[in-house]
Design a protein around this nucleic acid. Structure first.
Length: 138
RNA sequence: CCAGUCGGCCGGACGGCCGCCGCGCCUCGCGCGGAGGAAAGUCCGGGCUCCACGGAAAUACGGCGCCGGAUAACGUCCGGCGGGGGCGACCCCAGGGAUAGCGCCACAGAAAGCAAACCGCCGGCCUUUGGUCGGCAAGGGUGAAAGGGUGCGGCAAGAGCGCACCGCGCGGGCGGCGACGUUCCGCGGCACGGCAAGCCCCGCCGGGAGCAAAACCGAAUAGGAGCGACGAGGAGGCUCGCCUCCGCGCCUAUUUCCGGGCGUCGUCGCUCGGGUUGGUUGCUCGAGGCGUCCAGCAAUGGGCGUCCCAGAGGAAUGGCCGUCACGCGCGCCGCUUCGGCGGCGCGCCCUACAGAACCCGGCUUACAGGCCGACUGGCCCC
């Protein structure tokens, strides 16, 4: 519990992940063509932003109706948002956009495991090739 | 104390650290506010916005349907009436019209709406284990329903055929604003069976689409697609391009009438989608919440005081932790009227149903657990 308490309040010097938010449908659709990485609780998608200069990473959340009712969807999105917020060092690149697509496991997965999943996902995502490239290779 | 009926309410509390959305300011930062009783289903009724429209009548379509009241309105609510259920508190009811007309009444049964007669009962005749002719509708049987019920008289056998009581119908009186009631009076031997969640008749109500409504800014008067049209003008004023009068055409279900608006004094006019789901407004002070008094059986209305109480937009109201309350499970101890009750410790769920999306009034549906009040029927004690 002490360790937990300590990790909840970030260190003064620790860099708070300065994520922007994705809000346009077109932005979501562009990221969907990028790389993806799956886990029990979510799918992470990532794509490099082409047009503008790097202004830090941006992230968006997708929780579809398949996942549950309005109450459960809200809960899932808030847990994912919070997990991203407290994450100390995610391997997010400033010129990339990310999208988290929630799966049903995100509702009940222990919060510590959820954070661990996130760290693993961001570490692995950039070694994957973009979806569009793989499709072209086929 | 047990069983039950009805109504109302709550639906975790407090604190710490780190965040999110909105507003304010002394713009580092601080302060304040931040989901529900159903926010849900989108089933009704309104406000608001646009289609320029407003009023009257008729037709078509749809909805509603005992009476009175409440309300902005309703299919809602309140108080009654009638019918049904319950020992009772109380609960349930698509509850207008069946002599305006049409239609239907499955199966069974002889017969399903107008009287008829299968088994029977009674009488006559005959070729007498029966047949035939006539009378009857009480008994049997079928059915959701078979032309009032019980008893006595009567008769060949019977039958409201006659009588008594009960019931029913009609008229009047009385009570009630009314639905309706009636222990009142009179008449009628007594049908006019049911279904209008079948058509229909009567009365009342209703234009359509919806905040992705709609308005403004910007991109911008650049190109595309579709549709319509060769038609009715005349007179006057005159700042020479408009205005006025008459006519013609159009105006959101259709037709007619009245008012109003727009178009037409000629060659273009109208509509649509994409770039465009960009930004701002609409967007929260409202049939508002709370308290109190008055009127009313009540729904509700009115007066006074007080408060400002979410405004997001890929959509804020969260994450973690501590303490407590509640619930569940296990163990131990004590009490016990053997149903349980109380205390301590540990563990679990850290709460059920469920998340505002323009705003109100209702309905319906979902809901762990708990609290309060009124009343009914039993048992025990005084």
């Amino acid at each position: 519990m002490r360790e937990n308490q300590a990790s909840v309040s970030p260190e003064k010097g620790a860099e708070p992940a300065p994520f922007g938010r994705l809000r346009r449908r077109a932005e979501f659709q562009r990221v969907a063509r990028g790389s993806r990485w799956q886990s029990e609780a979510f799918t992470l998608q990532a794509a490099k932003r082409g047009d503008e200069a790097a202004q830090g990473p941006r992230i968006g959340f997708t929780v579809t109706r398949k996942t549950g009712g309005a109450v459960e969807r809200n809960r899932i999105r808030r847990r994912l948002k919070e997990a991203v917020r407290i994450a100390e060092k995610l391997d997010a690149k400033p010129d990339h956009d990310y999208v988290l697509i929630a799966r049903r496991g995100a509702l009940s997965r222990p919060f510590d495991l959820l954070r661990a999943d996130l760290n693993r996902a961001f570490a692995a995502i950039h070694s994957r090739s973009p979806r569009a490239l793989r499709d072209r290779d086929r």
